[in-house]
Design a protein around this nucleic acid. Structure first.
Length: 234
DNA sequence: AAAGCGCGCAACCGCACGCAG
DNA sequence: ACTGCGTGCGGTTGCGCGCTT
């Protein structure tokens, strides 16, 4: 039996998105506001993609509030802290970083932070020092143990009473200052802010481009993308 | 200069979840 | 309570690019 596929894949385009597809999607979203049903988007926007693909493209790449660029040290530290509480729940982790996507954080974790932790002798899954074959801890000299208890109500991962044990030395190296101000990053991007941001962006973009159904990419410069607006001083 | 290799990232896949009928 | 549908989420894949040999 099984579920029906999310869309009829026959005849649908896959792989990297073209500039034209991006603009068709953005154009559609600006004209229609919030998307009640992503499944209809490709048809209405004139795209040969499945709705899921459109949603993903919007969330991970086209959203105007996206913060591009590499992660800062403090962002990395926060990711490590949150991961120790939440595990691989990337969307939960991402909700602490307005402008960052779960995919982005997941990629960064898998490519950078995992290695960083391993170099420090910590298991990226448990955040505990990796056991040596003879049973000795890598950082045995750091006997002091931090017992992290869940302070945030959203920390469902810690409801089971799990204790994350990290040696103080390791922890200091990783996190720098321990008294991070949670309120500074737990405040989520409110809907109103998001709408404002979107509106501002549309206004900005409208002054540059005329995005109608017959959109043609700006000649030569096909790389005009939303997050670059701020860089060109609008 | 060319080939091989590794890394980073965008995108896909499939399962889980929530909701409406 | 059950079923079907749409969306969300996490794991995985594959491509492009830069670096090394």
């Amino acid at each position: 039996m099984g579920r029906k596929p999310c869309c009829d894949k026959v005849g649908l385009k896959r792989g990297p998105w073209s500039i034209e597809e991006d603009h068709k999607l953005m154009n559609f979203i600006f004209n229609n506001g919030t998307i009640p049903c992503w499944r209809n988007v490709p048809k209405l926007a004139g795209l040969l993609r499945c709705g899921k693909s459109c949603r993903l493209r919007w969330i991970n790449y086209l959203r105007p509030d996206l913060k591009r660029g590499s992660f800062t040290e403090s962002e990395e530290d926060q990711i490590i802290r949150l991961h120790s509480h939440l595990g691989n729940r990337w969307s939960k982790i991402a909700s602490h970083f307005p402008g960052r996507t779960d995919n982005e954080i997941k990629n960064h974790w898998n490519t950078k932070i995992k290695k960083k932790l391993k170099l420090l002798g910590l298991d990226p899954v448990t955040h505990k020092p990796v056991e040596k074959i003879d049973g000795k801890k890598e950082h045995e000299e750091s006997s002091e143990i931090i017992s992290e208890s869940a302070t945030e109500s959203e920390d469902a991962a810690c409801k089971g009473g799990e204790e994350i044990q990290v040696t103080l030395d390791d922890y200091d190296v990783l996190c720098g200052s321990l008294d991070l101000d949670h309120s500074s990053y737990t405040s989520s991007f409110s809907m109103a802010q998001e709408e404002d941001c979107l509106k501002q962006w549309v206004d900005c973009v409208d002054s540059f481009l005329s995005w109608d159904d017959t959109f043609f990419p700006v000649e030569e410069d096909n790389s005009f993308l939303p997050w670059e607006i701020s860089q060109i001083g609008v």
